[in-house]
Design a protein around this nucleic acid. Sequence first.
DNA 1: CTGAAAGCGCTTACAG
DNA 2: CTGAAAGCGCTTACAG
Lengths: 353, 353
Amino acid sequence: MAGPPRLTSGQPSTEGHPTLEQTSGIPGGRATIIDVAAAAGVSRQTVTRAMNGMSGISAATKQRVLAEAERLAYRPSRFGRGLVTGGDHQLGLVVNDLRNPYTPQLASAVFRLAAEQGWNVMLADVDLASDADRMVQALGAQTDVVIGYLGSRRERWRELLGTVPMVELDPYSEPQTAAVWIDPADAIEVLADHLVETGVRHPVVLDNSAPDDTSVRGALMVDALRRRGYLPDLVHGAHGTAECGAEETTRILGRKRRLDAILAFNDVMALGVLQSCRRAGVDVPGDVRVVGVDGLPLGALVAPTLTTLAVDLDAVAREALGLALGMLAGELPLQGATVQRTVRHSLLLRESA
Amino acid sequence: MAGPPRLTSGQPSTEGHPTLEQTSGIPGGRATIIDVAAAAGVSRQTVTRAMNGMSGISAATKQRVLAEAERLAYRPSRFGRGLVTGGDHQLGLVVNDLRNPYTPQLASAVFRLAAEQGWNVMLADVDLASDADRMVQALGAQTDVVIGYLGSRRERWRELLGTVPMVELDPYSEPQTAAVWIDPADAIEVLADHLVETGVRHPVVLDNSAPDDTSVRGALMVDALRRRGYLPDLVHGAHGTAECGAEETTRILGRKRRLDAILAFNDVMALGVLQSCRRAGVDVPGDVRVVGVDGLPLGALVAPTLTTLAVDLDAVAREALGLALGMLAGELPLQGATVQRTVRHSLLLRESA
DNA sequence: CTGAAAGCGCTTACAG
DNA sequence: CTGAAAGCGCTTACAG
């Protein structure tokens, strides 16, 4: 069995291939059904019949029409067709960075549920986008409803989306629209109790936030620990990535003597923490206990496996889609009164704590 | 700082909220610009001016129109608008399973590049989809060009996509359309040499395929090893997941005495291999060397870090988009003669081999 | 500041 | 088997 042929690679066999305009003579650039009809000497609806494999057309005519269509590189306009057929339902999903494993996990949950209901999904990754505002606006123009992470830009994006209904995921403060809260508070209490029981003395919270700021999640962790008599350190990691988690951990380990637990903002950062501990010869959970947040399957693949505050992302997707479809059906208000749902984390004990 | 409010959770405050039809009196269900114009007692283009924030409208009229629009839950049709404005460029991306970390890695590369050029991306995950065929057809109806993994269903999907140009990623055999090969052949040769140099004697290839089948990639590995005098075992894992990699490894380790290298079909399976080795007390790379394919960043987070055949997914995205845009611009043929590009893997030595 | 007219590209009845 | 007519919902000139 040989590898793929290499003759064509990097050297397309089409040098000097004439452009569409040159071959077709269509001045506007793109052929319409009128152009094809004229070229084939038939009416518009005969072209429709040929293109869509409908009945009521002779084999000869069909063949002639299809040949002209191909010659003119004719592709029916999705707008023209959608206008008359109504088109499919289209869901917009705004996410932050597909390279963070949390994102595809959420996206796949939304995607699966949407597909079951016959909805298509358009994705906007506002972290990867060169121009997030334009991207969000374009998303709104192409979709019937938008779900997603809006963060601090939500007011601006609410404007850009115009009349498109919106469901915010994990709002950072009281939302103006429909929203699904993802609430770690209960799980953090359970976790804090667990740390007490296992004899932890000097926990550190590794947040994902600017140095002068603290995330809601980080604040909840610190508060839960304080109420149990701890004096937790709060460390601000700038990026929510494994690299950042690793760097901060190396710094912490170099500085603190008596540290015996690290609560990371999310699983990905926690994986970085584990890596740093491993390299520093710090035993987890023997010397230091490590906990993440999110419940990514990934956490079960590392050694030690990662204890985490897990979210049921299928539930998040279900609630979000429920709100979105309810708004579209007119059963829920589009604006003004906000409708909210909550999905809570739960402590998933694995090996690292 | 308190957690999110819980008053509203699970108990929407909108019980008995009247439906759109009840409030608006629009029989068809959804209001159009005509309905709003009639309700506000103005013409259609005055409604357009109000909705789109255009000039040439008095504040009073604007306010009245917007109020009626909101009351009727009016949202402009994307088809009506697109027909006249032309609409945005829309790229369709067909992928296999977002939960496999390879997929978002590829998707994010495509996404970033597309966004730079002002394109939106619609995603179809044909593994998660309940009805993949319908999904692909819907994708074609909403997009200007489709890129993606088609596997063995490509002929059927080619039909479903109709006139929408298509770029196949990593075809399993000679494609009928434009395609980007992802070719591990060179890297496999380099890897095989490396295994020889490091004294490996009894390598096993852990493929992702049916028991009576072998993937191209697996076959290339076996062949490269044979040509160097090895008698490699070929194991068929059914799923290409970490779980599957782990299970098969446990089985292999239980059976084989002299195994000293495992070449996995992909990184995710290799992570399962590492996990199984760890649990069985088998040292990697001391007792067994482990290699994956894909070059996922994830492989740098585990212990030992994963040696792998890496692909430059940015290059894959670049080639694929180049072909797609070339076809749309009429610079490349849409059908018939196929245009192909190739991106090659390269050996990325980390700790596991 | 406002509206009557034309048209975007397609499909769906309806006649022949 | 084929075509003339109407219409999907919107925006873009153009007149007033």
